[in-house]
Design a binder for these strands. Structure first.
Lengths: 217, 217
DNA sequence: GTCTATAACTAGATAGAC
DNA sequence: GTCTATCTAGTTATAGAC
């Protein structure tokens, strides 16, 4: 049996992932957690603080799993591009399969594209350092790609990943995706790695400089 | 001077993009539009109906620009993978530069990862047909990629694109992206096309079948 | 730590005058 | 079509008994 604080965090995490931060009331959370409304405010102080607690609880675990995966691969000496991508992508998508932590991954995928959400203010702090730790590997493995280009590509990579995290429910968005099995985590991980590896390795010359070099307003 | 209905749509679109659907009250919208609260309900009936009207207003324009771009390229006979991607990606990201329609693109990018938002229910209907129109071209241009693999890759493509649409504000997510200029629309379009083209073309063999073929729960 | 009760406020929607 | 005023129901947060 989880104690009150954990039950509130679990219920909040699940409801936030399903309905959104703002759409979820403290009353709905405490009802789901079978806890008194006043108790939630006693433990967390405010809804805002509860939101932060929900995110803080899992961020460190995800960061650690990514950094450990990178260190493990490095220890085995086999640090090619696919291995680096695996270390970054796999922890997130495997966590998505976990019944409880999976709700956090879905939630994270949702608020990631939400710059004005309150989450947009602390998420960078929670995940920036880990991305920075991966960056030297990308630079080393893709010396032919200039840095501006590379950073754009990392941006695109994160977009694909976040979209997968946000929910495989979204696959309905295209009716034709009936062939894709959202439950096939391993297939999704491998396919995503192959896709972004291909994108990262694409010839830099494929991008011509803008037609109007610098004078554009 | 726009009439009342358009002023309400404009204000709603802007506020929805900045704060989210649920976070924006009818009062905030009518205040921004300098319109009476009751007038908004008179014209649209409910907040829900107003939300639908905001999305419906621009969806057709975006679809048409994509389909016209595809037809134009086809008419010029130069229909390679990059041209197809350009026809799909450019209309969205160029629209993002427009002062008014740009707010819709940001809004669209945000709600796209929000399957439980009310928007998640009508967005598929609004954009599915257009994606279907592009799909035969991808199949034709990438015959070596099997369909399941290809549909996954289209999913990843949409993820990258949506992330770009959602906001270049997000680039702050990684401090190192100071090199990327979010205002460089043309550069972003070309780089995104190069990236996803590389991903779509990646060797299919890069994805091995899952370790446990079919028996996994 | 947990509860009841409630304060203080905001939401969407509408009735009815003009 | 546009307004004021208001209804009903929901929200966060807290005071104070236990």
């Amino acid at each position: 049996m989880a104690d009150t604080k954990d039950r509130i965090l679990d219920a909040a995490e699940a409801l936030f992932a399903d309905r959104g931060l703002f759409e979820t009331s403290m009353r709905a959370i405490t009802r789901a957690a079978d806890v008194n409304l006043a108790a939630a405010n006693y433990h967390f102080g405010s809804k805002e603080a509860l939101i932060q607690a929900v995110f803080a609880r899992r961020a460190e675990a995800l960061n650690n799993r990514r950094l450990e995966a990178l260190a493990d691969s490095r220890a085995r000496g086999a640090l090619d591009l696919e291995a680096v991508l695996d270390a970054y992508i796999r922890p997130a998508l495997e966590m998505a399969r976990d019944e409880k932590a999976g709700r956090y991954i879905r939630l994270l995928g949702r608020v990631y594209t939400d710059p004005n959400s309150r989450a947009g203010q602390f998420l960078p702090r929670q995940y920036d350092a880990t991305l920075e730790a991966f960056k030297p590997e990308f630079i080393r493995l893709l010396p032919q790609i200039d840095k501006t280009e590379l950073y754009w590509r990392l941006h695109f990579l994160i977009g694909s990943l976040v979209y997968c995290m946000a929910g495989l429910d979204m696959m309905r968005l295209s009716s034709s995706c009936y062939l894709c099995d959202p439950a096939d985590t391993e297939g999704m991980i491998r396919r995503l790695i192959a896709f972004v590896a291909g994108g990262l390795r694409a010839a830099a010359s494929a991008v011509q400089p803008p037609i109007q070099p610098a004078v554009t307003g």
